[in-house]
Design a protein around this nucleic acid. Structure first.
Lengths: 244, 244
DNA sequence: CGTGTCTTTGAGGCAACTCAACACTCGTGG
DNA sequence: CCACGAGTGTTGAGTTGCCTCAAAGACACG
């Protein structure tokens, strides 16, 4: 499933200026005024990543950081015996490289074909010195990531399988809404294996949980990757979790 | 177990200047030079917190932030039905209030009698503007917390009970060593209930896991709260996790 | 129309949870 | 001094539910 050979296929698309970017208002660059974007754009390297390709591997030296502009990434770590824990799914606007260590502390792979803006770490740091708001924005994104990780701890540690899946759907729905998309037909770009490795379950249990929610009339599955939320309130009750 | 009545018993201890503080080199204040400490000290309010007292509750308005100087705190959130997930144990030098929202997003309680430095949020923010390194230090601590939370996701999602307990011991041992204490007789200040709520287990399973590790000769329990690590390598193998 | 991937469903076993009892420590008070 | 009770931890027995193993269905692609 995961390949590691040459992660990047770079290209420059002159038509696609930062100022007209889809995630202009959600990514790090939201911290900059329009007229400041050039500085960012000049060190930016557009990157296309095919589905299931590895962008960066855990332990690799951390030379570049990225903003996801389209598609989806999964961040994970793996145990020696192959068990995998996905710690986050990145959506457009999200940032990769929040850590400040010399190496990446997680592997990042594309869930579907994705586009990214890559920035050399050294130049990015120089830029942040000149534009403190860029730094601030990044710190804010780190705090958001921390909150999400702690929510995830609750989900992993204390929720039953059906509850996990219910809360997963609600979180995805909320995040889609934040990105200006419809909240209800939730599109699950990832496979059941990904969901299982994110929720600490097996694929069979994930599948059975979807079935349970469907039978109870809380969701409708037009196909395995399109989930219509029929009863949000009941779903939230099953999730047993506060909606943000 | 948790009480919420008047969390703070304040006192000023003039003999105990910041400059001579136990956690001078580990807490936020490590970012300041000795001669800059006055600024911090002038807005500081020493706080003593008895075991099992609540310092801040989830949802409460976030008026103060804290540095733990001695003792231990647990951070947790609770589901409506009483299930609890502890997301972190804070050790001396750790910071409470990394989030930037208007309210605390987790409850913090003392595991044992603890001492803290409290800082009004508004004054702390003003101080950070004047001392950017303070801000930087806080951001660094946020990134460390994020990494710990993601490690915890792996532990919660993919490790078996014995593996969870083994890795818990190793993490505590490593953190004790960071704080200049002995790595081997690990002192577990928290109860089995706390450990269970941190690792996503029941107290019985935690207890049985300790017994298994003991029977296998990996640890020695002089009492329930003193764990001697007899075979660190084997324990790491059981934990199945990289040692940082 | 085969082939491979992904998903769903079924059957059975095992491990973690539930329930219960007991050991131990530490105060308190008779 | 000992009895008592509360709180905490350990151990045992039984059950439930998730995981394992297996098979079949759904779908895309060549």
């Amino acid at each position: 499933m995961e390949r590691t050979h040459e992660p990047d296929r770079r290209y420059r698309d002159p038509c696609r200026a930062c100022i007209a970017c889809d995630v202009r208002r959600q990514a790090v660059c939201a911290a900059l005024e329009d007229h400041e974007l050039d500085a960012l754009q000049s060190i930016m390297l557009a990157t296309r990543l095919e589905a299931n390709r590895t962008l960066v591997s855990k332990g690799e030296s951390r030379r570049k950081v990225f903003t996801l502009t389209s598609g989806m990434l999964r961040l994970y770590t793996m145990l020696p015996d192959g068990r995998r824990q996905i710690t986050a799914f990145l959506l457009p606007g999200d940032y990769l490289g929040l850590g400040d260590e010399a190496t990446y502390d997680e592997t990042a792979e594309a869930v579907v074909d994705s586009n990214l803006c890559g920035f050399p770490v050294a130049e990015m740091e120089r830029l942040m010195e000149r534009h403190p708001r860029l730094q601030q924005r990044l710190n804010q994104m780190t705090r958001i990531a921390l909150r999400q990780a702690r929510d995830s701890q609750m989900i992993l540690g204390r929720l039953a399988p059906v509850e996990k899946v219910a809360s997963f759907l609600l979180v995805l729905s909320a995040r889609a809404a934040e990105h200006g998309q419809a909240a209800s037909p939730v599109h699950l770009a990832m496979t059941r294996t990904d969901i299982a490795d994110y929720l600490g379950l097996t694929i069979e249990t994930v599948s059975r949980s979807f079935t349970k929610l469907r039978v109870q009339g809380l969701i409708r599955l037009s196909d395995a990757h399109q989930v219509e939320i029929l009863d949000r309130r009941a779903l939230a009750a099953v999730a047993g979790i506060e909606l943000r």
